[in-house]
């Protein structure tokens, strides 16, 4: 069991590291301008010049994937920062203090969680309008309840531990206890929640861009590319194949990583 976890962690980590290296390399060298259109190369197949081919506007797919992965990473990262940050804070307060504050915040939380994630994100987007930044906001809000619930459970578990009692007896105030004494103990659980969350964020971003309410053209994002590619699925399969593969690898990588990080149950 232990070995399996380690293998899963290593495999996930190496997939992500390779992807990450590609994305990093794009900051130093991008073969083509991802938004540069080229009539001569419309629907060009895989070749040495364009080794993932070109799309319906003659843009280099490889360059666009690099650009799109960047965007997707960015969205997923900040979504987790917002959702995970606020969610953990809410969970910490409700779990540690309990009582009426717990009741109020958790009922609010339940109300948010009652909507399907994607639907709620759509509602938020329709309220604040599309765009990269707004997608981050919408997904961030949607991700709060999940993190809050997990964090609450962990803080609830830890607040009656003896070491919390001894921290109290040293004169530590509640916020000091939450941040310095309990929080470090919840990191293993929160970390695996973060990897799962990252996955969901990647999928959600791709899905929203696919529907045309996420990243706006001409900017590239993996979901956006997939949505543009579906019209040419049969004539130019490489257009959809490569961005699709990257999404699959991203999600697979984070799933494996999360699996490996999870506490041995």
């Amino acid at each position: 069991m232990r070995k399996e976890k380690k293998r899963s962690f290593l495999l996930g980590a190496s997939i992500l590291i390779v992807l990450f290296c590609f994305v990093l390399s794009s900051f130093f060298y991008m073969p083509y301008d991802p938004n540069q259109m080229d009539n001569a190369n419309k629907f060009a197949g895989v070749s040495f010049a364009h080794w993932m081919g070109c799309d319906n506007f003659g843009r280099d797919i490889y360059s666009r994937i690099l650009q799109g992965t960047r965007t997707t990473f960015l969205v997923a990262f900040f979504t987790i920062i917002i959702g995970g940050g606020i969610g953990t804070a809410v969970g910490a307060i409700t779990g540690y203090f309990g009582g009426w504050i717990d009741e109020i915040l958790m009922r609010l939380n339940d109300a948010v969680a009652a909507f399907p994630n994607f639907l709620l994100a759509l509602v938020v987007i329709s309220l604040i309008g599309p765009g990269t930044f707004n997608v981050i906001m919408a997904l961030g809000i949607v991700f709060i309840p999940g993190f809050a619930r997990i964090a609450r459970g962990e803080f609830l578990r830890c607040r009656n531990m003896d070491y919390v009692k001894s921290a109290k007896l040293m004169g530590a105030g509640p916020f000091r206890i939450i941040i310095f004494h309990i929080f470090p103990n919840t990191i293993p659980v929160l970390l695996s929640a973060v990897t799962i969350g990252f996955n969901n964020a990647v999928i959600a971003e791709a899905g929203m861009s696919f529907l045309g309410i996420g990243v706006q053209p001409p900017d590239a994002s993996l979901g956006r590319m997939l949505s543009e590619a579906q019209a040419y699925l049969f004539s130019t399969p490489s257009y959809a194949f490569f961005p699709g593969m990257v999404v699959v690898l991203l999600v697979l990588g984070f799933s494996l990583l999360g699996n490996g990080l999870e506490r041995k149950a």
Binding site: Y163, K165, K168, M170, G171, G173, P184, N185
Partner: peptide, 26 residues
């Protein structure tokens, strides 16, 4: 609460039965 925090640790120290769990593991 404030006075309690001042009193605990500074004026009064306490130890328990369970040394195994009274220290923060991380």
């Amino acid at each position: 609460n404030k006075e309690l925090c001042q009193y605990r640790g500074k004026e009064m120290g306490m130890i328990f039965q369970e040394p195994m769990t009274s220290l923060n593991p991380v």
